[in-house]
Amino acid sequence: MSTTPPVLELRNIDKSFGPIDVLHSISLKVQAGEVLCLLGDNGAGKSTLIKTLAGVHQPTSGQILMDGEETRFTGPRDASARGIATVHQFGGTFPLMSIGRSFFVGVEPTKGWGPFKRFDRKRANEIAVKAVQDFGITRIDDGDRLVGGLSGGERQSLAIARAVHFGARVLILDEPTAALGVKQAAHVLRIVNEAKRRGLAVVFITHQVMHAMAVGDHFAVLIRGAIAADFRKGERSREEITDLMAGGETMAGLEALSH
């Protein structure tokens, strides 16, 4: 549908750890301004796939392409320097740090000179608060508050706003709504839509079909390390998707029994 190459594409990715094959011939692509939903039950290989996308694991074979060109990530820092940001289930990992401080971990704005260079708390707080508010989370107005004092949805939003602020082009969201109530989850889904509107390529990992349907443009169902189904928005109904995921589960159960 589009002539621009996908921001991130996987071609026939296999990943094995020693004798154990975890991913089989995975091919996926995600365009800018598009949400790719990865659906799969626990143990389907979702987290291995995420870690491969984020540069933590190197694929055993297959190609990773960014903007149509083949590439390799040497590590998580390499991947994040190239615009791939991963936001984990609980959002930020520093619950005891203030919003402003955690927002700028490793890239603190400073003022002053030489040995008297100081962390610019005021500016850090201002930028962090503005970045989250731009995503519609107006309840956050004090950058000195601790991240741990925010609700789960707000923490997710903060982490996403942070990734966008630092120039992420691909946003990998690992089960962002799994631990949240209905209202908080709706909150995060709105943020996902906002990130998409801003032209980010979003990879949204979930096992909640409802949440996937709400934001997804493109869906892939992962069963035992392989793509079991790959379709676009509107091509399958909610029941069909649920059946697909449940079918995989049943098959996995049957196979386990036959051993």
Partner: peptide, 10 residues
């Protein structure tokens, strides 16, 4: 005050 402090907390 310094950025090292932020690193220590992190």
């Amino acid at each position: 005050q310094s950025r090292f402090g932020n690193w220590i907390y992190a």
